[in-house]
Design a protein around this nucleic acid. Structure first.
Lengths: 117, 117
DNA sequence: CTATAAGCTGACGTTGACGTGAGGTGCAAG
DNA sequence: CTTGCACCTCACGTCAACGTCAGCTTATAG
């Protein structure tokens, strides 16, 4: 598939896909005319990127863990990285849940006390 | 308390506190010499900011919900905003949990397959 | 053959929450 | 009274993940 279709399927912009390639995250073959060609599996791969970005990982960090995904094997260093990323993600989730509780507290405290418009 | 102490107590930089003031989030009285003076309650207030920033809210958004916190009352519009922010936060939490599952899947898949160093 | 939609490569612009450096002032201790 | 740390106000710098525009080429429908 070409870049436009992949963008639609994965729910990102064309620019984003070119950026991922620039960052070494997403390879592509080229047609004789120079246009990028992607396999079907690229869709899931891009969705994975989105998920990792949402988790707060940088392109660099994602690039670091990609070999694990692609080869299905890990070195000791890579296992450490994965564990660190998971721990960091856990912290972030905890933070967000805490923030949600604060927001809920605010909502509850002001729920029945209607202020002036 | 002065700005340096508040920064330490709340775990942010002095620059951040000045920035919060610039954004209308954090007021301060001034000493005769022009230095900022904060009440003890500012510590908790700044921690609240950090929590909201972590939740993905912008300074502007935080400024919008501050009146609810300060007055303990809400207008219909403010309740809508709070609900929207909470919903968005919920979405983000779900994303992160999904990301964590993906990471866990990756870790589990490669856990016992040690690659070359 | 020709529109025209889609793709290409630079390369500069954007945004938010600060970092950082310059150059000067306030304040408690000795 | 001076040392020295904390504080002050500009104001430019940063960083990441793209957005956007220009100028040109490729692919495809009619």
């Amino acid at each position: 598939m070409r870049i436009g279709e992949l963008a639609r399927e994965a729910g990102v912009s064309v620019r984003a896909l070119r950026y991922y390639e620039e960052q070494g995250l997403l390879g592509s073959t080229r047609t004789s005319g120079g246009q990028r060609e992607y396999p079907e599996t690229a869709v899931e791969r891009v969705r994975f990127f989105q998920s990792m970005y949402a988790a707060g990982l940088s392109s660099r960090r994602i690039a670091d863990i990609l070999p694990c995904m692609d080869t299905g094997t890990t070195t000791a260093q890579q296992r450490d990285m994965l564990a660190a990323d998971r721990a960091e993600l856990d912290r972030r989730i905890t933070e967000l849940i805490d923030a949600r509780e604060r927001l809920d507290g605010l909502i509850a405290a002001a729920a029945d006390r209607v202020g002036p418009s």
